[in-house]
Structure formats: C-alpha cells, structure tokens
Write a protein that binds this DNA or RNA. Structure first.
Lengths: 233, 233
DNA sequence: CTGTATCCGTGTTGATACTG
DNA sequence: CAGTATCAACACGGATACAG
C-alpha cells in the first residue's frame, strides 16, 4: 500500500521531537540523530552509494545507515536515485536544500577544532578533508590570488579553485589544475594540517606532486588550525 | 576519591565516539547527544539554574539534564558556579569557548527555518527567541541605523543594540532603551514572526509598548523568515 | 527549595548473520 | 551490492525517593 509506506516514512524521520518552535531545535529533530549529520557530510561533494557510505563511516552498521537514509529522505534532505543501466546502481545525494546545510558543518568544525580533546590523528574521510579546507581557509592569506590546485585522492579527483579569498571545490577532472597533489587522504592531511614537509612526504612516496611546486607549497599553508581553547576563561 | 570522580567525569562526556578526525564529527562527539545543544542554547544569554533549564526544556527529565550538564562540564563547554550566600544556589554557565558555539545555532536555525516541516507555533524559550533575532536579522534593512530596543520577557530584561547591520543582545536593565516591548515570549514572537500587528497585540493586552512607537514598529520588521525549501530541486 | 540518585518500562543503537 | 533480521546493550524519560 502506498499510503502505508508514506506513513512509515514520515514516522521514520524521528520518533522523538523536541516540541520546540526554535528552528535550531527543529534542525535537531531532522538531523540530530546519531550519524545523520555525518551521512550528510559524506554526500556534500557528490552522490555516493550505500557501501561507499559504509566505508567512509567506520562504525556505522548497515541497519542504522538504512534508517538514517530513510529518515533524511523523508525529511527532504537526501534523494535516492537509480543510475541508468548498465550501472544499475543506486546512489544517494543531497537535495538542493540539503546542500545548504554546509554552513552547519563549518560552524561545527570551526568550533570543535578548538576543543582540547580533538584528536586529528584519527582516520579522515575524503569529504571531511575537503570540507575542512573550505572551513579553515585563511581568507586573508588567500586574498588576491587566483589559482587552481588539484587533489587526486584514491581514484577520485577534486579541483580547488582559489579566488577572492575563498575556495570552491568540485569533483572534476584536473586538466585545468596548475598543481596536483596525489595520495591518500591521510597524506594530504599530513601535509596541510600535520606540519609535514611536502618534500619529506614526496620522498616517502606518500604524496605525488605535479605541476607548479611553489604553488603546491603555498597551498598547503593556507589552512591554519585555530588555537585550542583554554580552561574556560 | 578525587581520581575516581575525574575518571567518571571523563567517561561522562560520551561513551560512543565517532573515531573520526573531522572536527565536525568531534563536535558531535562532544555535543551531539540528545538535548546537549539545547542545554547550551539556554545558557547563551547568561547563567541558569537547574530548574530554570528544566522549565525551558519541556520534555527533558532531571536525570538526563544532570547527565548532559556533567558531560558538557567535562568537555569544557559548561562551568558550574555556586553563587555566594545568601543566594546559595548553583548556576550553570557557558565557558568562553562554550560561548563561541553560537554560530552553530545560527547555522542550524538558518537552515531549518527553511524546512517544510518547521512548526513555528510550538512553544519558544526566551533564549530561542533572542537567538533567532541574532540569526534572522536582515543586515541590509538594519544597515546604517543605530537604535536600542528593550525586551521585557517575564521578569527578565534584554537590550538589543542595533548598529552596523548587526544586533547585540545582552541581559541588562532597559534604562538606555528607546523603545521597550513587554510580554510573554510568545507575544513578542507573534509580533516579529507571526505577522501580528503591534496594535492588535497591544489591544489584547498581550504586549506592552513603551517609548518610541515608530521604532518598535520598525524593529519587528527586521527579522524576515526565509522561504521554505521546495521539493529537492 | 534545589538539585541528585535509583529504579524501571520502552525504544534506539549497534554487531553479527543472513537474504534478494 | 544493497540492504533485512535478530538480538543484546544501552540511552531515554517518568516517577519517586533522597540529600543539602
């Protein structure tokens, strides 16, 4: 029955509501359940398949991922799309409104980067790294420069267009890139946030660098981490 | 034993971690449990006592509130302070870093205000209303005007200083206010977000208006709600 | 009067195994 | 590959009793 299915889906959003007119509370009604925001984070840079999501969210179980995707779909945040044959796979993607949630991740990330308990040595997903670049970009340092830096992370490529003190990141071929960094997410993160020298990472074979080396060196300095918060002063 | 207590508190932050270097994920480790962000929201405009919090968070139970406050304290977000006698009451307040979480509420609120499912007729706490003013202020409309509008909500007073296209809100006496709105949170919300005429609310006795009436009329038009999101376009 | 601790029914979460 | 089924553990919320 169609109506049964719809009823079930509406319930799937969340059984527990805050009963609060505050829009922030409503946001938590929609995406406040465990894992929901991280699922959305993984979709920010494009559609993903069920098992892609499982892979980038270590610790989530299949049934919980199913529930979250159903809930997010019912909330209008996520859309499920079946690719045309012969791919025949199903993918999940953010709706337009879902894509507007990006400032939430930036606000959360900017705030928690100052947490004394934050451990940057844990594993990082591709989406997390890219989102952190958008969040942590030092606008002043990047002001007045136009550049295109490519990132090859595993088998995906992303182009970072720097300009006007901001960075736009899209999944696309790297033909236009003036410099390209290639490697695992962890290696790129080590270069940008771990204070590791590009040359050392390159020598270890962890990172490949093509194109404008000076640009690459400059690029990795654009994303300073904020100072840790003190004892509640 | 002191060390036992500390151990207990560290565990109280959260038993379940995402094991993810992403700072946004770490934020959810810290404040992603049910009610945690709403407790913080209630503390944004000043210290509150345990039962104040219970009152403004309908639905939270005493034991859950205790757990959240312990967790937030262990995370360094909330500080517990005992007032000097004869008040002899305990209050909870945000630490400096905790206060920096305000952009999170704004991002959540700005996003969820566009949710098709958002119901603005539900009850609203004082902190929610004030936070929504900061979030929804139309900077263009407020640009180039300096004004001080007071809000008397129940037995608390708040001064809204408009200037430079922004609004700063603090809990303080209203001596400096050029106009003052008095009433229940719901009445002020009805005037600002519900499209209710000030005159009608005043006639009903729901709202008191003192001082510059034209300023009051202008003030309530400064906070437009965003359009609802469509069907995932 | 202000919080805290304990008990308990219920629902959510998460690990494993399994199916179309 | 994309989920479903099952079950154990735990978190939530309500009530109640307790402590300063």
């Amino acid at each position: 029955m169609q109506s049964e299915k719809i009823t079930k889906k509406v319930e799937a959003v969340s059984q527990r509501w805050y009963e609060d007119a505050c829009a922030a509370a409503h946001a938590l009604d929609l995406v406040g359940e465990r894992w929901a925001l991280l699922v959305m984070r993984e979709l920010v840079f494009g559609p993903r398949r069920f098992n892609d999501l499982r892979g980038s969210l270590p610790g989530i179980s299949a049934n919980v991922l199913t529930q979250r995707l159903e809930g997010l779909e019912a909330a209008g945040v996520v859309r499920r799309r079946r690719l045309a044959p012969p791919a025949a796979a199903q993918v999940y993607e953010l709706t337009e409104w879902g894509r507007e949630s990006e400032p939430i991740f930036m606000a959360l990330g900017r705030w928690a980067a100052r947490s004394p308990a934050h451990d940057p040595t844990l594993p990082l997903s591709t989406a997390s790294l890219l989102l952190s670049l958008r969040t942590m970009l030092d606008a002043e340092r990047a002001a007045g420069i136009e550049a295109r830096v490519g990132l090859r992370l595993g088998d995906e490529t992303f182009l970072c267009r720097l300009g006007g003190g901001a960075v736009a990141i899209t999944a696309e071929p790297l033909d236009e890139a003036e410099a390209v960094l290639s490697g695992l997410v962890a290696a790129v993160a080590a270069a940008i946030y771990g204070g590791r020298k590009l040359d050392a990472l390159q020598a270890e074979g962890a990172l490949g660098i093509e194109g404008d080396l000076a640009l690459a060196r400059w690029f990795v300095t654009l994303f300073p981490l904020p100072a840790k918060a003190g004892r509640g002063g």
